[in-house]
């Protein structure tokens, strides 16, 4: 039997047993996310498509799946959604500039052996694809932080309708600070796990520190990790501000 299928079945059973209906929904969401990601990559192979715009559209779909499908449409998911999209747009702009300046797009010289049988002149813009890759790798974490801040903020508002906008904002920031450490940790270890083979390989080749830092593979993965951390930190004030603003506005309307 296929190992992947077997793992997927185990994950599905565990999610349903432990999470019930919500667990099943989360599992379906994983599949939908995979479908969106795959479709985006397929469209990206068209040289006329702009990978940046495609990424933003894909991110919108992915945020919809993870916020509106797993949870439901309400004022906490809506503010989380808006904050996610704004953060991603800011981050994307930053990452495109970084990718272009540091020239980390595409493939490194260490991969040439593997690539020798491929044509590399493909007509698609690898700088933009590289930026898309970095954004996509953090979107899961960004959505997670957004919803983890927006939802207790709404709880606070529901318990105490009189709470000021400034207090709401600082409440959001303080929650964000508490989850900042664990969330960056989650991402870092995920990346470390993924790059383990490469790290061992660098050690085997006994590259000097200078060679490692300047090599395309290592520097692109370093920049990927750092940008992911920046994204996770950036979403905290953005979500807090937008949720506080939104809750304040709905209160004014209801009066």
């Amino acid at each position: 039997m296929n190992a992947l299928f077997c793992l997927a079945v185990i994950l599905f059973i565990l999610m349903v047993v432990i999470g019930g209906k919500k667990g099943a929904k989360s599992f379906i969401a994983l599949f939908l996310n995979f479908a969106v990601l795959l479709l985006t990559i397929l469209i990206m192979t068209d040289p006329n498509a702009n990978p940046i715009i495609l990424t933003l559209i894909a991110c919108t779909f992915i945020s919809c799946i993870n916020l509106f499908f797993i949870n439901e449409i309400n004022n906490k998911t809506i503010t989380a959604f808006v904050s996610t999209i704004i953060t991603l747009a800011i981050l994307l702009f930053f990452i495109v500039v970084v990718t272009e300046k540091s020239m980390i797009q595409g493939f490194g010289e260490e991969e040439t052996e593997e690539l020798s049988m491929f044509s590399l002149y493909l007509g698609v813009d690898f700088v933009k694809i590289g930026a898309a890759m970095i954004i996509m790798s953090t979107i899961g974490a960004i959505i997670d932080v957004a919803i983890s801040i927006a939802s207790p903020m709404r709880e606070l508002y529901n318990h105490n309708q009189q709470v000021s906008r400034k207090d709401l904002f600082s409440f959001g920031i303080s929650i964000g600070r508490d989850i900042l450490g664990t969330n960056t940790n989650t991402l870092f270890f995920a990346f470390f796990g993924g790059y383990l083979a490469m790290l061992i390989w660098f050690k085997d080749l006994s590259y000097s520190l200078g060679d490692i830092v300047n090599s395309k593979i290592f520097s692109s993965e370093m920049i990927n990790i750092l940008c992911a951390g920046i994204g996770v930190a950036l979403i905290i004030p953005i979500t807090s501000w937008i949720t506080a603003y939104y809750l304040d506005k709905t209160r004014e309307k209801s009066h």
């Binding site: 994983l30 996310n33 694809i129 970095i134 899961g140 989650t186 993924g194």
Partner: peptide, 21 residues
């Protein structure tokens, strides 16, 4: 549960985008 599995999922899969293309 859902959002955490998503974090790992995107962190792992996205790295392959240039190679897939």
């Amino acid at each position: 549960m859902g959002t955490m599995t998503n974090i790992l999922f995107f962190a792992y899969i996205s790295g392959s985008i240039p190679m897939l293309i």
